Amino acid sequence: MAPTMMKAAILKELGQPLVIEQVPVPKPEGRHVLVRVQAASLCHSDLTIIQGQVGVGAKPPLILGHEAVVVIEELGPEASKYGLKVGDRIGGPLWQDWCFDCYECKSIGTEFCSKITMRGVTSQGFFAEYTTMDAASAVVIPHNSPATAAQLSPIFCAGITVWDALSRAELKPGETVAIVGVGGLGEIATKYAQAFGAKVIAIDVHDGQLESVKAGGSADEVLNTRGLEPMELIGRIRELNNGRAVDAAIVTSGSNAAYSTGMSILRPLGRLIAVGIPPEEVPFNAAVVAIRALKIIGAKVPGQTGTAACVEFCQRKGIYPKVNPRKFQLEDINEMIDLMSAGKVEDGRMVIQFF
């Protein structure tokens, strides 16, 4: 039986540190379930939410956090039809509360539904001891899974986003993919790309992050692009790739410079996959896109179907994000935010472990 009160990390004011408070444990309604949070990881998107830079606009007071592993404590009145039961360990993507009735839900994917809510943005998130969760978005994690909750937690945003990107890139074995930005998302992307059979070139401006993926064995080549002029950049890429530009570039960094890098190193008919979201619009040279017949493809957090496929892929391949060995507590959340803001992520994803 859940208690009546719980600890939560609350964004009280945009741009300010989160506040740890005691708040009431929510009640599951409709198809929602009450869950106890086992592990919740910090995502770079949380930083943009705190600063008020997300397009939909987060409205304080708000409990942040949108990637976690949780355990079901109680079913809402309409949740049982989704096959869940008390004690199930589950994870879920950012999206929830889709309608199932609109054209997007029926024909494209529930993640495109105009009625969805965004966990930790327009609905309460996982940086709390308990929360409620849409049963329709849940992905059950087998109890015999070899991975820890801390390893699994970052999959439910960072992992599924870059898995979606690599799926949309339609990589063929032997192709070369550049991962532009190898922090949290990019580190996972290098592992997935190798599992897809691609040659991986890791690109960043931080030596620590490049050294981390190189030491982890998930990058065939690494390149620090800081200070490189455009001709020098493509020259270095050709040196690393048998005289060729890359077949695909997945940009996980949220900067215009990263997108310029990704575009400039593609071969004709190459694919640029957009993942990172800069705070300002990204300009592009339409002539270059047209003359070289480049493809620009968006990737996003998938819905329940894509999330389940990614989780199955990770467990079948034994591929998990690199996790910071420190066992963070909820009270450490503002320190975690400061570390991520400073780019100190080479030790792996920072995860709050509740139990």
Rank of each mutant, 00 (worst) to 15 (best):
A138I: 03
S253F: 00
Y82S: 07
A290N: 09
Q315N: 03
H206M: 09
H206W: 07
T190A: 05
I265P: 02
I291F: 11
G30E: 12
A198R: 15
K295I: 00
D97S: 13
K191E: 01
G208F: 11
D347A: 13
I72M: 08
A293K: 10
V37K: 07
Q53D: 09
P146S: 08
G186N: 11
A249D: 06
E175D: 13
C310M: 12
G92C: 04
G83K: 09
P302E: 06
L75T: 01
A215V: 01
R349Q: 04
G57H: 14
K12C: 01
A39Y: 11
L269E: 14
L233H: 11
I291Y: 12
G92W: 04
E175C: 07
K317D: 00
E111R: 06
V25K: 13
F354N: 04
Q151D: 01
D204I: 02
A248S: 14
N334M: 14
C99S: 06
V19G: 03
I201K: 12
Q124H: 10
G30K: 12
G303H: 10
D88G: 01
A198P: 10
H66N: 03
Q353P: 04
I237G: 06
A135M: 08
W98T: 02
A178H: 13
E187P: 02
C99R: 11
P77T: 02
G254D: 03
P173Y: 12
